[in-house]
């Protein structure tokens, strides 16, 4: 089991102070057998990329409700590339207008999940991205 352990960094970039959704996802990923590094509120893109490097994560989940995704996410993606972490898959959750999704995906984001997404879908998307089969 340890050989295929998936490590996920969950972070909230920017200034909004609402992390209920991020916590729900963190809990769901733990219950799916992943190791979740939860970094808390108000993370800068630099803090997120640096934590991803030190923790050697496979996946980053970013939760943004503030509307600042258009500037914050491309910065995270650029920093990850600069650090040689382009293999890390980035998923975004929160309030993201549909019209912004193509731009986020173009910047390298692997998936965008809005409110109401069943946590099982997120778990499956992460497992698929890591090439790990669903158990059972």
């Amino acid at each position: 089991m340890t050989a295929t352990m998936i490590r996920v960094l969950i972070a909230k970039p920017g200034l909004d102070g609402h992390d209920r959704g991020a916590k729900v996802v963190a809990r769901a990923l733990r219950d799916a057998g992943m190791e979740v590094i939860y970094t808390g509120l108000r993370q800068t893109p630099e803090m997120i990329a640096d934590a991803a490097l030190q923790e050697d994560v496979d996946v980053i989940g970013l939760s943004i409700l503030s509307g600042a995704h258009g500037t914050l996410i491309p910065r995270v993606m650029r920093l990850l590339r600069e650090k040689g972490l382009e293999r890390v898959k980035v998923f975004v959750g929160g309030i993201i207008p549909d019209s912004d999704i193509p731009d986020l995906k173009a910047s390298g984001v692997a998936g965008v999940y809005g409110p109401g997404t069943p946590t099982a879908d997120v778990v499956k998307a992460i497992r698929d991205a890591q090439g790990t089969p669903q158990p059972g």
């Binding site: 089991m1 352990m5 963190a26 809990r27 990923l29 733990r30 219950d31 799916a32 057998g33 992943m34 190791e35 979740v36 590094i37 939860y38 970094t39 808390g40 108000r42 993370q43 803090m47 934590a51």
Partner: peptide
């Protein structure tokens, strides 16, 4: 002990 997963939250205090 149930899922084998974990929530590692110590970084929250180390920002």
């Amino acid at each position: 002990p149930f899922s084998g997963g974990a929530i590692l939250g110590d970084r929250i205090r180390m920002r």
